[in-house]
Nucleic acid binder design. Structure first.
Lengths: 370, 370
DNA sequence: GGAAAAATGTGTACCGGTCTACGACATTAC
DNA sequence: GTAATGTCGTAGACCGGTACACATTTTTCC
């Protein structure tokens, strides 16, 4: 067997020669530039097809664009991030741009390396999902490359941003629980001491929890456990809240991850859900939807966020200079983990619709902000 | 406020000028090339630090390497893929290479576009996780760029490959169930009719199931439902198996996804797990580990696979031409979804350790194959 | 001490595109 | 008929690196 001789790739010069025109002409056709006759266009396009030519991104990047959008995320295994990427990829599908993902990890140092890697690869735009970096660093990056930050509440005129409206989401949960008749509602949050919190999300959720409690004259029932938004954090937080007397009849965990820990703690304590304690989360992760878990939670439409991100980035690349900030309205997903505090007649299970999603349309869900 | 004037990036020429040497010298230092004195090295390195220079990947790619490994996957939200990437990133951390991920989607066309995108971006190596493409196409890609295919059983001398040893994994499940005393064990598999199956994985699992049944003189009890490896497939398959009389006391679903569907179907039928029916899956997804699900399943060490993939790709890039094929030995994770078929005395729950993972060390888990 | 060998640094042609400047030609205006 | 304008195509510099060829030292060895 002959060694597989690596055949040289077809270049723009090959196409030019094959079509009997100049390199410049081919380039113009590829980029849909001005100053090409229809005849020329057809001719070049035929040559491109015949040779199976595809421009090399690296060469293009050197002078013009790389036609690449870089997406930075801590970890690729997070379902919500996957939704965002789905939306982004969807939006970019019609364009010539390609999305590439890079893992930044959970440490400042590794994230910086990842961001640098994207810049070094000349991406045309960067979508940062919940980055750890300091705001000044983000602004510095944005000065070099169109940047969109998703999931952080600290806006900047230097870059676009998209966030979930955590106020609305938290209100939805609280009004739901209170509407069911709960009064002793606990909350699990976290602060900087317990992990990397470059963002105010937990604060907003906790503040809203307290505000709604007060608005319903339940200030005396406020009970917050400050741990972290992880399964362990939820577990610890739940144990703390359950230790109080009287114990809460409902727990609003700041995140689904934490809510899973809460469920584990309740399971261990021999308490039933929602019979003894109702549980609600935030984020609508895939786990939350599973019938064996059936967690009431808040859904952020990641796909819409991703689509919007793609659109905004393309706009920026096309030259927009003013910053755009979007807030996406979440919706409540009621499942079987929440019910009225009074137990139902023995033997019958709470009859809540298993997967009622009060969805808003994409158009409603996104609203432009000042 | 002054418009943020985009400052020109520091280039190799800037460094050369600042250090008072030639471009070529700087390039040599960067690449650790032969023919540089220690004095020169120090001088250039200082200049690099002082200016904060980082080479531009696009420019490097044009002539030499891009220092980029491309990872193709259907979807970034799959936890097992995330593990692989973790291992890969870990392995690459010491090198100068960076991993970028790209979504291929679930259709041939979108996958092809993604692969082309990687090639156009001049990546130095491609890791394809369970690609859909035909073998000939993969070989064609491998002729251009060092390629490693993960999770497909069809080897080729053109590219390296890493697979889970599905025979061993399936044996582990079956021996476990039979060891518990089960005889009527059903299996859920899928075939090409029910989805994209470029690979023989389901076949191997199903064949092993049947073989082990026969080896234990249980040929008469063999019951296979052919649906798909999805939650819906598991649901449908379980309903089919449960319809038989007598119904199986255990179900070995070909994948965790399918197992989740099985659980849903059992739940709906009012059957308890593992009291009435034991359930085992394959893949050890994150869901399977959750206490509310606690599924007995087979764990493939994705991190080890990723690390191995990284090492093999770097070897290839360095010039290895012979193909390497690795098989990773999985391990059984026993959780609460499996127990002996005879119900325990009423009131006590089956006492199985919740999260016993019989782990093999990384060294044992990977073994080289002809 | 002198020749051969090794070590070190530089000049410069690339890589494959993009893009500006410019020339040739056609069309319209006066 | 000539000038002005517009359309179309090409030449060639350029992007920021790499790597080869070569000149110039320095070292090694008799």
């Amino acid at each position: 067997m002959v060694a597989p001789e690596r055949r040289r790739r077809v270049t723009i010069s090959d196409v030019a020669k094959h079509a009997g025109v100049s390199k410049a002409a081919v380039s113009k056709v590829i980029r849909n530039d001005y100053g090409v006759s229809q005849a020329m266009r057809d001719r070049v396009k035929r040559a491109i097809d015949e040779l199976g030519y595809r421009p090399q991104a690296a060469a293009r990047a050197l002078r013009g664009r790389a036609f690449t959008i870089g997406v930075l995320m801590q970890h690729i295994g997070i379902p919500f991030y996957a939704e965002i990427v789905t939306g982004l990829v969807d939006e970019l599908a019609e364009s010539e741009y390609q999305a590439i993902m890079i893992q930044g990890g959970t440490r400042d140092k590794t994230e910086k390396r990842a961001i640098d890697a994207l810049i070094d690869r000349q991406v045309d735009g960067i979508l940062m999902i919940a980055p750890l970096a300091a705001r000044t660093h983000l602004e510095q990056v944005a000065r070099e490359i169109p940047t969109l930050v998703l999931g952080r509440h600290d806006r900047s005129p230097a870059y676009d941003s998209i966030v979930d409206d955590d106020r609305v989401g938290s209100e939805l949960v609280m009004e739901h629980l209170i509407g069911l008749g709960h009064r002793r509602i606990g909350h699990i949050t976290f602060d900087k001491e317990h992990g990397q919190a470059a963002d105010r999300t937990p604060q907003i959720r906790a503040e809203t929890y307290e505000r709604v409690m007060r608005e319903h004259d339940l200030a005396g029932e406020i009970a917050v456990a400050t741990t972290s938004y992880t399964e362990e954090g939820g577990y610890d937080g739940a144990r703390e809240l359950l230790g109080r007397s009287p114990r809460p009849t409902a727990i609003f965990a700041g995140s689904d991850e934490a809510a899973l820990g809460v469920l584990a703690a309740l399971h261990e304590a021999g308490l039933s859900v929602p019979g003894d304690v109702s549980v609600a989360g935030y984020d609508n992760t895939k786990l939350a939807a599973h019938p064996n878990i059936a967690l009431t939670t808040v859904n952020q439409d990641g796909v819409v966020m991703g689509r919007t991100a793609g659109r905004l980035l393309l706009e920026r690349i096309e030259g927009r200079t003013s910053a755009a900030h979007f807030s996406v309205i979440p919706s409540l997903v009621v499942r079987r983990s929440t019910a009225s505090p009074r137990p139902c007649p023995a033997g019958t299970e709470t009859q809540m619709p298993a997967r009622t999603v009060r969805d808003v349309t994409a158009a409603d869900a996104v609203r432009r902000r000042g």
